[in-house]
Design a protein around this nucleic acid. Sequence first.
DNA 1: CTGAAAGCGCTTACAG
DNA 2: CTGAAAGCGCTTACAG
Lengths: 336, 336
Amino acid sequence: MKPKVTMQTIADKLNVSVVTVSRALNDKDGVSEVLRQRIKQLTKELNYRPNSIARSLKMNRSYNVGVLISNRYADSEDEYYINVYKEMVKKATELKYSLILEILSSENEENLKPPYMYSESKIDGLIVLGQLTTEYLKEIEKNFDLPVLYLDFYLNDSLIDSIIIDNFYASYQLTLSLLKKGHREIGFVGNIYSTSSIQDRYLGYYKALLEWNLKPNDEYLISDRDGLGRLIDLKLPQKMPTAFVANCDKIAHKLNQTLNEHGYIVPDDVSVVSFDNSVYSTLTPVKITTVDNNIKEMVHTAVNIIVKKIKNPERKYGRILVEGKIIERESSKTIS
Amino acid sequence: MKPKVTMQTIADKLNVSVVTVSRALNDKDGVSEVLRQRIKQLTKELNYRPNSIARSLKMNRSYNVGVLISNRYADSEDEYYINVYKEMVKKATELKYSLILEILSSENEENLKPPYMYSESKIDGLIVLGQLTTEYLKEIEKNFDLPVLYLDFYLNDSLIDSIIIDNFYASYQLTLSLLKKGHREIGFVGNIYSTSSIQDRYLGYYKALLEWNLKPNDEYLISDRDGLGRLIDLKLPQKMPTAFVANCDKIAHKLNQTLNEHGYIVPDDVSVVSFDNSVYSTLTPVKITTVDNNIKEMVHTAVNIIVKKIKNPERKYGRILVEGKIIERESSKTIS
DNA sequence: CTGAAAGCGCTTACAG
DNA sequence: CTGAAAGCGCTTACAG
């Protein structure tokens, strides 16, 4: 490793002070244009890299934002959140922030252990990506001395801002599209006590039915996971509806398999629609009609807001809704 | 936000110096056990969080490792690398390091622009995940003043350590498994000029054929991407072999589709085997025989080594091979 | 066992 | 336009 180049090195070579170097490099007033150029020039020749750690200490800012994801969402083949993360990284870089990802183990979640990056003051703000236990979230809300943003879920009675897909509206639209195709017996797949997003999708489905004067049939409500988010086998009802709204593509894919095992073909016997527009929706033999979550818009909003909150922690944003978009594919069919 | 708690706060309350507080919290000698406990106790009561930025400045360590991935590998539905990243995060946390991910755009790659996290001195070491252009890598090797590790590829004539799946050996074994099933006409799918990993997989395939006194047939070599890594349509040969080795599951999946379009059924007409054990290998109707890359072992080794290199930059590790494991599934069939 | 001093590399008032 | 001084919150060598 070569000798370290600091602002002092530059200053010494040009017989000026570090103050001047700092001002020149940060494009602040108080340096003659000639000197500024000389300094910038030398900076390149010497391969000077600013020490962001030193700046951070002075400014009381790390220029890092933490992203916390539960092991539940990151551990399996569930690629959705990790994809969201990727988009976040791109956006954060634009804003000169770095992202630090931490995977929250079930154990630490249960023990209410704060993220390492928080305990070590490595971050200026935190984005919680995907719902955690209410106890854990309450703990964050009570103790955290940092701007926090919930992404892709919200918590009732919470003062913490959140950004969510407008699941309710999207589900309402999606269910309407089935009704317009002639379906009257429509089921829903998902544990509606599990996450706010499944709940809202269920209620949007409910609303569409009510609007067509239909009563949701409890027999058509199939759970897909236990209270801890672990997937369970899907139990088909005795009498089959003509269509299902699945709470996500992954479950739609699983539903498709379960249906096949029982001799039903999608969409000839049963239509299936779902949410997320993830890899699961296109890799099955029959491509699934789904809702594109508009990850990009959601993520851009999220990163912008957390940065704004770092600069002004008092400002509140509340619940921000991002609209999804239905993508019609082969799994939903018009019936008579 | 509450008033900030620092070591000074603790020191003042107990009428000791910050030196003593620092020693107590870092479990260093020179503090009586009684005092140490009192300090630690107070730390909890006041919700003290050490300022890792200050420590970093003093120690000249950020305790961050950068991970650089090309847009090419992260942008599409290619979940492989992002999965690898997730495992890296878990391992890094164990070692008290944080990871900062940066996505390298094609533009920055072409202009040889160094990663932001490097230019801003935010990281102590860099892991390059997935091959970049030779020019970019040479630039890193020439200029970077940090430990660097290549993960999942290597560069010839490079002094930089790398960790790779033993592609050559795995491919050799995989091809042998086809030969043992009676196949004699075996094709290979992949642009062998594109990445070292495709090249090595091709050569392992080659070796297996040679060992059985077979000559690889150029007609059976199908390219899958252009020089920049963009996927292209697969052109099937006039005369079909009885089996294909595809350079990854994603391509195997695509090959399967192409074969279907031309009226061939896997594995009845053609067997297909591939690499990665990714989501693509199990979501197709016919599950694909593939090689599990042992991501965990690869990642654990990688993170351990970069941390060791940060502590001792002189030490060389060379090319480290991690063994893959064949997972037999339905897409490869015994023929007579 | 305990502390005063110095310093990591910056930035921001303040003074000229 | 330029610089001396102070300070961000730690850790380490030195002294007692």
